[in-house]
């Protein structure tokens, strides 16, 4: 463990992980309340398109994730994700088309560059490889995300509970829904940097679902989700660092594995205790 905090990649990882965990917790609570787990998951997957495109164009993957996340969120909203009926087919179709395109871009990545890591890096993340310059950018985006939730908090909560009630009170329900999906897109792009695109929903949904089992107050749930996410991410970084000499391969185990495992076990534990308590 010596030298853990002296290592630059570790410090970058801890900072980036913290930003991500907090934003995910705050946004994730609304994803769960609104029953949009599939959309959240799909936006994560779709980050693959941005990540692989960014790799190909040789720009910072963060901006690829963010750009595609925002655009696709808009497309999904237009396709009818806001309706309960038929929305999972809408999500599925958009997701399918975009994943197909990602397959092509990743294919070009693997054939045009000699480094074979694009697929793995984009899909499963590699936080230790994040550049120090990415931290202020991620922190800025994260702060913008949290600020966004704070600003739309009341209309968002009302329209999540009952869209009819909200529009009766003059809330522009569709605009709020679209804005929120874009927010989810940005958040998922941050989590994609930490655990990769296909694992990003775990950090978005897991801590939020766990916290919502413990408290019904949205504000408290957000705080709880942020803390759970933070613990999972930091513990994941520490364990991944510590696992450098673990069998069988004597290379570090991936951060994403630890983060996701901790999130899942926490959710299961809380769920079981909550069921027992009733």
């Amino acid at each position: 463990m010596t030298g853990f905090f002296q290592s630059d990649p570790v410090r970058v990882a801890l900072a980036a992980g913290a930003v991500t965990a907090v934003v995910s917790g705050v946004v994730g609570v609304f994803v769960v309340i609104r029953g949009q787990s599939f959309a959240g998951h799909a936006l994560g997957d779709l980050g693959t398109l941005g990540g692989s495109g960014a790799f190909l164009a040789n720009v910072n993957p963060l901006w690829g994730f963010v750009g595609v996340g925002a655009v696709v969120a808009g497309a999904m909203e237009l396709f009818g994700v806001q309706r309960r009926r038929g929305r999972d087919v809408a999500t599925g179709v958009v997701l399918g088309a975009a994943l197909g395109l990602s397959a092509l871009l990743l294919y070009f990545d693997t054939t045009t560059s000699t480094t074979t890591g694009a697929t793995i890096t984009v899909l499963f993340g590699s936080l230790f490889a994040a550049s120090p310059q990415a931290v202020p950018e991620m922190a800025g985006l994260g702060a913008a995300g949290v600020l966004g939730v704070v600003v739309v908090f009341r209309p968002l909560l009302l329209s999540s509970v009952s869209p009819d009630l909200a529009s009766a009170r003059g809330v522009p329900v569709r605009a709020v829904a679209l804005g929120f999906l874009v927010l989810v897109g940005v958040t998922v792009s941050l989590t994609s940097m930490v655990v990769g695109t296909i694992l990003s929903p775990a950090l978005l949904i897991g801590p939020a679902a766990t916290a919502l089992r413990l408290t019904r107050r949205p504000g408290a749930a957000m705080a709880g989700a942020a803390v759970i996410g933070l613990i999972a991410t930091w513990a994941g970084i520490v364990l991944s660092y510590a696992s450098d000499h673990w069998p069988p391969a004597h290379r570090g185990w991936p951060i994403s594995f630890f983060v996701v495992a901790i999130v899942f076990v926490t959710y299961l534990g809380v769920e079981l205790v909550a069921r027992r308590a009733r």
Binding site: S37, F38, G40, H41, F124, I198, L199, P201, A202, I205, G206, A209, V260, A261, V263, F264, Y267
Partner: peptide, 8 residues
């Protein structure tokens, strides 16, 4: 979402 993430 959670089961998928864990398996992945």
């Amino acid at each position: 979402a959670l089961v998928v993430a864990t398996m992945l």
